[in-house]
């Protein structure tokens, strides 16, 4: 009986010893962790500007800007404005939201971000949950439909002041 108990104590004792060796007040371990910030052109989510309506600011961030406003009651095709590239390793879904001040105006805006030169309000092809495989890219065309007041009302002045690009 004792012979059997002794190994059992031994095991219990060993367990306690192992557990107590795991107690510590603090451990500080430095590990190498490199995080680089890239300009949009070469980042994980690559944003390549195309002239004349897109460029980069001093920080290398993409900026979309027009020399003047688009016409009222008109269709304005700004052509291919920028290209989004997935430089990550997994497929992501890309969505572009249009902002005016703090408001998300995507649903009512006369502006269409489309992944196709043929995109239009009846054939949206909007950049909205658009799958983008690793290493793939999509060209983003911008069109403005100020001739559809009933559907996409607007007022003269700024109709978008920033865009939020989400890849997830």
């Amino acid at each position: 009986m004792l012979k059997k108990l002794i190994p059992l104590f031994g095991i219990l004792l060993a367990a306690v010893v192992v557990m107590s060796t795991g107690a510590f007040t603090s451990v500080t371990a430095d590990r190498e962790a490199t995080i680089n910030v890239s300009g949009d052109a070469s980042a994980l989510l690559g944003l390549e500007a195309h002239a004349p309506y897109a460029s980069y600011d001093d920080n290398g961030a993409l900026v979309v800007e027009l020399p003047s406003g688009v016409n009222v009651d008109a269709e304005t095709d700004l052509g291919k404005v920028f290209t989004i590239s997935n430089n990550g390793t997994q497929t992501v879904n890309v969505t572009i939201r249009q902002m005016l001040g703090a408001n998300d105006v995507t649903d009512t805006s006369p502006i269409l971000f489309t992944s196709s030169p043929d995109g239009n309000p009846s054939n949206m092809q909007a950049v909205w949950n658009t799958p983008l495989g690793s290493g793939d890219s999509i060209d983003v065309y911008i069109k403005v439909y100020t001739n559809m007041q009933g559907q996409y009302p607007y007022q003269i002045g700024t109709i978008m002041d920033s865009m939020t690009i989400v890849a997830e």
């Binding site: 949009d40 994980l44 989510l45 944003l47 600011d57 961030a61 993409l62 900026v63 979309v64 800007e65 027009l66 020399p67 003047s68 406003g69 688009v70 016409n71 009222v72 008109a74 304005t76 430089n87 990550g88 390793t89 997994q90 992501v92 249009q98 902002m99 006369p110 502006i111 690793s134 911008i142 403005v144 100020t146 607007y154 007022q155 003269i156 002045g157 700024t158 109709i159 978008m160 002041d161 920033s162 865009m163 939020t164 690009i165 989400v166 890849a167 997830e168």
Partner: peptide, 29 residues
């Protein structure tokens, strides 16, 4: 491959588009 994986990226960028009266628009009339 592991180093390039990301869960999500959200990037806000300045993108300004205005509508102008014909007199001052891209194609001014």
């Amino acid at each position: 491959t592991a180093s390039g994986a990301f869960t999500s990226i959200t990037a806000e960028r300045d993108a300004t588009i205005s509508v102008s009266g014909d007199g001052e628009a891209l194609l001014a009339l």
